[in-house]
């Protein structure tokens, strides 16, 4: 059963009492809070996610509450606990949902033992594009643009490689949009649900895009890595597409490795195999239309000639 299928009043009561058990990225996470605004956001963003039965084994427990009973009325700060331990210092009530988002990210990434790289991943027709780039480069933006054009979201933050075969696992949580990307995606996908904007955070303005239903219901499906594209967004810039050398691509991927150095030989073999088999590009873009078209074109080339590790074109 999905979260959104349960009557809202029953859910709100459960959030406050024992917590709601959600299945996220293969984990069962118990979410508990009595902050009404946070419950509202969870219902909006996670309505399509599967609920676990009311009793059972939790993989992690997230509890967000007012920093003190009095703070409910004065001060208005909240605290988040993961498995009983506070995760951050108290934050303003108006930013409380951000703590839930970070706590969920933390729970899922802390429970992943496979290789994890800092990259967005989207899939179409079984083939995945990996978008590694530093924070602020626009990888979540382009990932949001792809998944609102029919691609399946695997993650806007973490590329998780399954140890058995190097395939990519889904880690589909709501996509974090920051600053100007919020307006860009609102304009790009006016029908998509985007949360209210959280202003004045440490990372500027933030909002969250609800993943398409298909990305949530197919979360157990893995995808084959097929293409590496390192994106950079520059306002009004013309599209520029340059091939990434294999050595350069390897450095880029391992530099963004969340746990590359602890995964030892599996980490090396996975990244090296990825670089051997996937064409890699550096993409600079000024509009989402250009970027999405370019990535779709690159993936179409891979699909036509899966043995070609480097497409013939060099610049468009």
């Amino acid at each position: 059963m999905q979260l959104g299928a349960v009557p809202e009043s029953a859910l709100r009561a459960r959030f406050r009492a024992t917590g709601v058990r959600l299945r996220l990225a293969g984990l069962c996470i118990n979410l508990r809070t009595d902050v009404p605004a946070v419950i509202e956001q969870i219902l909006q963003l996670y309505g399509g996610y599967p609920l676990e039965p009311g009793a059972g084994t939790d993989d992690a427990r997230v509890h967000l509450k007012y920093a003190s009973p009095l703070r409910r009325f004065i001060g208005r700060r909240t605290l988040v606990f993961v498995d009983g331990e506070p995760l951050y210092r108290p934050m303003l009530l108006r930013h409380a949902y951000l703590m839930i988002d970070s706590a969920l990210d933390w729970c899922v990434s802390a429970n992943v033992t496979n290789l994890v790289l800092h990259a967005a991943v989207a899939e179409r027709g079984g083939l995945a594009v990996i978008l590694p780039a530093p924070s602020g480069s626009g990888k979540s933006t382009i990932c949001a643009a792809l998944v609102t054009r029919g691609w399946r979201l695997l993650s806007d933050e973490l590329a998780v490689f399954r140890a058995a075969d190097g395939r990519l696992q889904s880690f589909a949580l709501p996509i974090t949009l920051k600053n100007e990307s919020i307006a860009l995606i609102r304009q790009w996908a006016p029908d998509a649900y985007i949360s209210p904007v959280f202003t004045g955070t440490i990372r500027g303005d933030m909002a969250f895009l609800r993943p398409p239903t298909d990305s949530v219901t197919r979360a157990a499906e893995t995808a084959e890595p097929a293409l590496i594209v390192s994106p950079t967004y520059q306002v009004g810039a013309p599209l520029a597409l340059q091939p990434l050398g294999k050595s350069e691509a390897f450095r880029l991927l391992t530099a963004s490795g969340m746990n590359y150095y602890t995964t030892q030989r599996f980490g090396f073999d996975t990244v090296a195999g990825l670089v051997d088999s996937c064409p890699a590009w550096r993409l600079s873009y000024g509009t989402l239309e250009q970027a999405v078209d370019a990535i779709e074109d690159l993936l179409a080339r891979v699909r036509m000639d899966p043995t070609a590790s480097r497409p013939a074109i060099t610049t468009t």
């Binding site: 050595s247 390897f250 450095r251 150095y261």
Partner: peptide
């Protein structure tokens, strides 16, 4: 040892230290 040679650069994984050397 495990390694790759791309673009005239060797990248070597050293299993005893767990380090990757360029």
């Amino acid at each position: 040892l495990t390694w790759r040679c791309w673009d005239d650069e060797y990248i070597v994984f050293h299993p005893w230290s767990g380090m990757t050397h360029y």
